[in-house]
Design a protein around this nucleic acid. Structure first.
Length: 181
DNA sequence: AGAGTGATGGGCT
DNA sequence: GCCCATCACTCTT
């Protein structure tokens, strides 16, 4: 099981997003297989980076392979993986993972059994990812990592429209592993 | 299965 | 002061 290399993430978000399917998100004892992602490109009206760099989205403009975490709706965190070249302002939103290890811990954090990581907010709660993890380098040993266990992403990833946004809904930049929602 | 809605707080115009 | 890259609960088909 090898760590995902920075060079693999230093490509456009629309390329990296399907590449990330079936990769493993690891945080402490918790492991999950990525099954749903969305790409947010530069000059993408739905992207946090669209209006330029601010304190909140600064990590998006840094080098690829870092975690961009933001707080939204007054109660949820969402996790993104920075892609492209530094300065681009690109990222891939992690929307869902299949829990593989540390399920007990995730259920305890969630406070309820079942459907513990099938949404961007739930995923962050289950993996204890919050603003304290913002900027973490996933390509170096640390509290959060991204690994490849040799399971290839789907040969023909399923793409569809992104969710929860009101602009940029024309671009099919959401990818799922076939069989998951 | 799907639509409607309240919770709740930081970010930005 | 309004807008969310959400979730869970309720009520309706």
């Amino acid at each position: 099981m090898r760590r995902v290399r920075r060079a693999e993430l230093a490509r456009d978000a629309v390329v990296v997003a399907p590449f990330l399917l079936n990769k493993l998100l690891v945080a402490g004892e918790c492991v999950g297989r990525i099954i749903e992602v969305e790409a947010y490109m530069a000059f993408d009206p739905a992207s946090h980076a669209f209006r330029g760099m601010t304190n909140r989205n600064a990590v998006m403009f840094g080098p690829a392979g870092h975690l961009y975490v933001y707080f939204t709706y007054g109660m949820h965190h969402c996790a993104n993986i920075v892609t492209g070249t530094a300065g681009d302002g690109q990222a891939v939103l992690l929307r869902a993972v299949e829990p593989l290890a540390g399920v007990d811990v995730m259920v305890a954090r969630r406070g309820r059994p079942g459907n513990i990581a099938d949404g961007p907010g739930k995923l962050c709660q289950a993996f204890a990812i919050d603003l304290g993890s913002n900027g973490t380098d996933l390509c170096r040993p640390g509290p959060v990592g991204l690994f490849d266990d040799g399971v290839a992403p789907p040969a023909t990833p399923v793409s569809s429209r992104r969710i929860g946004i009101s602009v940029g809904i024309d671009t099919p930049w959401r990818w799922t592993v076939s069989g998951s929602s």
